[in-house]
Each structure stands twice: as C-alpha cells, then as structure tokens.
C-alpha cells in the first residue's frame, strides 16, 4: 500500500482517538453515586456512555458510508447518531430522576448555571453532589456525543475507504480504538464529571496527550498489519 494512504490512516486513527477522549470529558458521568440520585450525571461509567453513543454513531455512519464517499458527510452523520443516542439517554434519565425519584436536576459543581444563569445551590439537597441533568450538563453532553461520534466515524471511514477493509472489520476496529481511548479518559476523570464547567475539565490536556500516544501505538499496529499486504477486503 502507498505510504501516503498509510499516513492518512494513521492520522485518522490518532485524530479519532483523541476526539473520542475529548468527548468523554464532556459527557456528564455520575457513576455509582448517580444511581442513588446523589450526584449529577448518568448512572454509569464514562466508557459505557461513550461506547453506547459512539456505537450508534458508527451505525449511522455506516449507513451513510454505503452511498457516500465524502469524509465530512460520513463523519458528521456519525456525530449526529451519537448526539441522538446521548440525547435519548439524557431525556429518559431526567424523566426517571424527576418523576421517579422526585429530585430537581441541579448541578453540584457550580452555583449558577453558566448557560441559563439559573441558581443551582438552593435546590441542591444538602450533603449530595447534585441530581439529574441540568441544562448545562445536557448541552455539554450533547457536544461530547457530537465530538466522540465524529471521531469514531472518522476512524471507520479511513478504514473502509483508504485501508479498504471489510465493513464488519472496520466497525469492530473503530469500536476498539474508541474504547481504548475512552478508558484513558475515564482514568483521568476519576469516576464523575459534569461537563465543561466542571473543575476537573481543566485536566483534559493531560489525558489528550496520553490518548495521542495510545492511539499512535494502535495506529502503528494497524498500519503494520496493512503493510503485510494480507489484509484484503475490497469493500468499496
């Protein structure tokens, strides 16, 4: 395979991995405390949230990739799919928190919502870290889904159109690279994060650096495999 194509694949893998890591930092992740309604965010780990949304993004991206050769269109359709999944999760989480548990969506990290300027602290139950998903977390999470889905679809597009892999293989590999980067981001956020307004968000560049190295190594593994000439698929 030509060196330029291998370089493009490597760049797309690195870019996709780093974007997935950035997306994880923007998602409101509540972890175990959120399952009891004592923390803001979705009651699961960061990786599950990113995995679920990026996988939906891959489905939409794969559908569009069947009849389009435009990298921007495929990547954007992946982003839209991931955004959609994240929004549905948020909607149902909020319905459960508000009408099931009976708590007000409120941020535990900021006193005033940076977007809607609504007061947060008076509505927060003492000794908890917020509940549900207030507006700022919702917007931040949707941006996170967009970025993560965009990254995943970018890897998928590079693998089927430049590396000429089969659809199934490209999807599985894109999923793997997203997961490997998401866990490094999850190590960095340590359990819970609310979004871009969270003080923990300032540590993002460190995780992005580590993700760059991890994606580079994964990318080198894929490029090495492609140089053997065994990998044939003829997808497009």
């Amino acid at each position: 395979m030509e060196p330029t194509i291998l370089l493009i694949v490597l760049v797309c893998v690195i870019l996709g991995g780093v974007l997935a890591s950035l997306g994880v930092h923007l998602l409101p992740v509540g972890g175990a405390p959120a399952a009891m309604g004592t923390a803001t965010g979705i009651a699961t780990g960061a990786i599950m949230l990113m995995f679920g949304s990026a996988l939906t993004g891959l489905f939409t991206a794969a559908t569009v990739a069947m009849f389009s050769n435009s990298i921007v269109l495929v990547a954007l359709s992946g982003a839209v799919g991931a955004m959609l999944m994240v929004s549905i999760i948020f909607l149902f989480a909020n319905v459960t928190y508000i009408f099931g548990a009976g708590c007000v969506p409120v941020s535990g990290r900021v006193a005033v919502d940076p977007i809607t300027k609504e007061l947060q602290t008076p509505y927060k139950t003492p000794q908890t870290d917020g509940h549900g998903l207030p507006s700022v977390c919702l917007i931040s999470g949707i941006i996170g889904g967009f970025i993560g889905g965009f990254g995943g679809a970018l890897i998928y597009f590079a693998l089927i159109n430049y590396a000429k892999l089969e659809y199934a293989m490209a999807g599985v590999l894109a999923m793997g690279i997203i997961l490997a980067n998401a866990i490094i981001a999850a190590y960095n956020i340590r359990g819970t994060i609310e979004g871009f307004h969270d003080p923990k968000f300032r540590t993002t560049p460190k995780a992005l650096l580590v993700c760059f190295v991890a994606s580079l190594l994964c990318g080198i593994a894929i490029v090495l495999a492609l140089t053997t000439g065994v990998i044939t698929g003829g997808a497009v």
Partner: peptide
C-alpha cells in the same frame, strides 16, 4: 464502575487491534 470497562478495554480495545495485527 470502571471494572466492566477495563474488561471491555482488554478484549474489544487492545485485544481486537492486537488480533488484527496478529492475523495479518
């Protein structure tokens, strides 16, 4: 909550990329 994630990471993340390279 990171316990399941680390299992997914081992098999679907690094495991799949490694198996792809190994098979090539």
């Amino acid at each position: 909550t990171g316990v399941p994630s680390i299992g997914y990471f081992a098999v679907i993340g690094y495991g799949m990329v490694g198996a792809f390279t190994g098979m090539a």
